[in-house]
Amino acid sequence: MENVWAAVTAEFADITDEQEVARILVRLMMAAVLGAVLGFEREHRGKSAGVRTHMLVSLGAALFVLAPSMAGADEQALSRVIQGIVAGIGFLGAGTILKGNGGDPSHVKGLTTAAGLWMTAAIGTAAGMGREATALISTLLALLVLSSMPALVERMGGEQEEKKKEEGTKH
């Protein structure tokens, strides 16, 4: 029984002190919370990838860089990990894109959701690397884009439609 306990203890020896536990918790919680913020915005708008998806993407990206970093990986190894995250999220994002809605083959849907997942992975990566301020600022900027741009585009589109109507009545 002593050997079993020693083996179990050795398996959990990757966390050496309270500071390391706190560091892991802060980074992973930060990634999860920031992913949830973007996911809530997407879910609120009725999009397919919502809170849970964004949280998992962000948390996964954070863990993918945190674990090798804690294991002593050098910058080149972390660079390869980040490249893998970017490629993997590209495949996930591609699954959210639908083409040809309602018989119109030129209509593409899901690009913003795919880009949002890509951004969420980048935010999780930043949090996992201990760049919490960068992750927070990036989340706020992404939220600003996601929340304010639709209204701005709609307003600009409405103004263009009014100009077209005015020009049509002049002729």
Score class of each variant (00 low, 15 high):
residue 4 V to M: 11
residue 6 A to F: 08
residue 7 A to V: 07
residue 7 A to C: 03
residue 10 A to P: 05
residue 11 E to S: 15
residue 13 A to V: 03
residue 17 D to Y: 08
residue 18 E to Q: 13
residue 20 E to C: 02
residue 20 E to Y: 05
residue 21 V to T: 10
residue 21 V to P: 03
residue 23 R to K: 11
residue 24 I to V: 13
residue 24 I to T: 07
residue 24 I to R: 11
residue 25 L to Y: 09
residue 26 V to H: 08
residue 27 R to F: 05
residue 29 M to W: 10
residue 29 M to G: 13
residue 29 M to L: 14
residue 31 A to S: 05
residue 32 A to S: 12
residue 33 V to P: 02
residue 36 A to N: 02
residue 37 V to C: 06
residue 38 L to T: 06
residue 39 G to W: 03
residue 40 F to S: 07
residue 42 R to D: 08
residue 49 A to P: 00
residue 50 G to S: 01
residue 52 R to I: 05
residue 55 M to S: 10
residue 56 L to R: 04
residue 62 A to T: 07
residue 63 L to M: 15
residue 63 L to C: 08
residue 65 V to R: 02
residue 66 L to Y: 04
residue 67 A to K: 13
residue 68 P to G: 10
residue 69 S to I: 03
residue 70 M to W: 10
residue 70 M to V: 06
residue 70 M to I: 07
residue 74 D to S: 00
residue 74 D to P: 03
residue 76 Q to F: 15
residue 79 S to L: 15
residue 79 S to I: 10
residue 80 R to E: 03
residue 81 V to Y: 10
residue 82 I to W: 09
residue 82 I to H: 08
residue 82 I to E: 10
residue 84 G to C: 06
residue 84 G to I: 04
residue 84 G to A: 08
residue 85 I to R: 04
residue 88 G to R: 01
residue 88 G to N: 03
residue 93 G to D: 00
residue 93 G to H: 00
residue 94 A to Y: 00
residue 96 T to P: 01
residue 98 L to Q: 05
residue 99 K to N: 04
residue 100 G to S: 04
residue 100 G to R: 00
residue 100 G to K: 02
residue 101 N to Y: 12
residue 101 N to W: 11
residue 103 G to D: 06
residue 103 G to Q: 05
residue 104 D to A: 09
residue 105 P to M: 06
residue 108 V to F: 01
residue 108 V to M: 00
residue 108 V to G: 01
residue 112 T to M: 01
residue 112 T to V: 02
residue 115 A to T: 00
residue 117 L to A: 01
residue 117 L to C: 00
residue 119 M to A: 14
residue 120 T to I: 01
residue 121 A to I: 02
residue 124 G to S: 09
residue 124 G to C: 04
residue 129 M to H: 08
residue 132 E to R: 06
residue 133 A to C: 08
residue 133 A to W: 11
residue 134 T to E: 13
residue 134 T to W: 12
residue 134 T to A: 14
residue 136 L to K: 05
residue 136 L to V: 14
residue 137 I to W: 10
residue 140 L to I: 13
residue 140 L to Q: 06
residue 140 L to V: 15
residue 141 L to S: 13
residue 141 L to Y: 09
residue 143 L to T: 07
residue 144 L to I: 14
residue 144 L to C: 14
residue 146 L to G: 02
residue 146 L to R: 02
residue 146 L to M: 12
residue 148 S to N: 09
residue 148 S to I: 12
residue 148 S to W: 07
residue 150 P to E: 06
residue 150 P to N: 05
residue 151 A to P: 08
residue 151 A to D: 11
residue 153 V to R: 05
residue 154 E to F: 12
residue 155 R to H: 14
residue 155 R to C: 10
residue 157 G to T: 09
residue 158 G to K: 14
residue 160 Q to R: 15
residue 160 Q to H: 13
residue 162 E to H: 12
residue 163 K to W: 13
residue 164 K to E: 15
residue 165 K to V: 14
residue 165 K to W: 12
residue 166 E to M: 12
residue 166 E to K: 13
residue 171 H to K: 15
